[in-house]
Simulated assay, not measured.
Amino acid sequence: MTPLARAEQLAQSIGLAAGAVGGASVDQYENPTPDSEWRVKDLVNHIAVMLVLTRDVGTRTAWDPALLAANPVPLLAGRPESEWAPLVNSQAEPAARAWSEPAAWQGEVGFGGPPMPAEALGEILIAEFAIHAWDVAVATGQHLDVPESLANTMLGTYAREAPRMRSLGLLADEVPQDVHAPLFERALALSGRNPRWGSPRAGGGKGCS
């Protein structure tokens, strides 16, 4: 895949995450999510962190490691929750734009861990933004339409990166899944999520990952 194609998929994935955040109402912020340790509010904050770091890493701008543990992130701190979604959405375009140049996909970068190839990190970001879009969507009763090409990229990324990410405590254990299941469901399972999970508050059945 060319850097341009990767950049387009990253923008697409960021758009899914920002759209899911925008579609969640504040009164759903305490809803449970597929990650048992996080509520929707925590996921919104995490997506905000990811957007800021994606922008800064893409432009090779120095960033404060304390951002990784900030809850809420400075972007959201002191602001009413009713303003969180617009603030998150304001960071989507700058984050995508930072990776729109081929140079962003070259060399090595750091994202809170040891330096790694920018190309590999960019592909992880493609997968993670879409996964978190699903986390928010399923926790708040939204439909998420993930293009087949994006799901295919996600599946390939998790097939390659999930063991390492799991060893670092970044992913839960893989959920058994039918090899003939849709690509996106297989990517969810590889990331440690149960594709059948549903929030009781969003009208779905109970589940866990």
Rank of each mutant, 00 (worst) to 15 (best):
M1N: 06
L4I: 06
L4M: 08
A5L: 14
A7V: 00
A7T: 01
S13G: 01
S13K: 02
I14S: 13
L16R: 10
A17P: 01
V21K: 05
G22L: 01
S25C: 04
S25Y: 00
V26G: 00
D27E: 14
Q28T: 12
T33P: 15
T33I: 05
P34H: 04
D35P: 08
E37D: 09
W38T: 09
V40G: 09
V40A: 12
K41Y: 02
K41H: 05
L43K: 06
L43W: 04
H46M: 01
I47S: 10
M50F: 03
L51H: 06
V52I: 15
V57F: 07
V57R: 12
V57K: 07
V57W: 06
T59V: 00
T59G: 05
D64Y: 00
A66G: 10
L67S: 03
P74Q: 09
L75H: 08
L75K: 12
L76M: 12
A77D: 09
G78Q: 04
P80Q: 09
E83L: 11
P86Q: 09
P86C: 06
Q91Y: 07
A92F: 02
E93W: 14
P94R: 13
A95E: 09
A95P: 13
A96F: 08
R97G: 00
S100L: 03
W105R: 03
G107R: 03
E108D: 08
G110P: 10
F111Y: 15
F111G: 14
P115S: 14
M116H: 07
P117I: 10
P117C: 04
A118M: 08
E119N: 14
L121H: 08
L121N: 01
G122P: 02
E123R: 12
I126L: 11
A127K: 10
I131S: 01
I131R: 01
I131Q: 02
V136I: 15
L144Y: 13
D145A: 13
V146H: 09
E148T: 13
L155E: 14
G156Y: 15
Y158T: 04
P163E: 12
P163S: 14
P163I: 15
R164D: 11
M165V: 08
G169D: 07
L170I: 00
L171F: 03
E174W: 07
V179H: 00
A181P: 00
F184S: 11
F184W: 08
G192V: 11
R193M: 11
N194K: 04
R196F: 11
R196H: 11
W197K: 06
G198R: 06
G198P: 05
P200Q: 01
P200M: 03
G205D: 11
C208Y: 06
S209D: 07
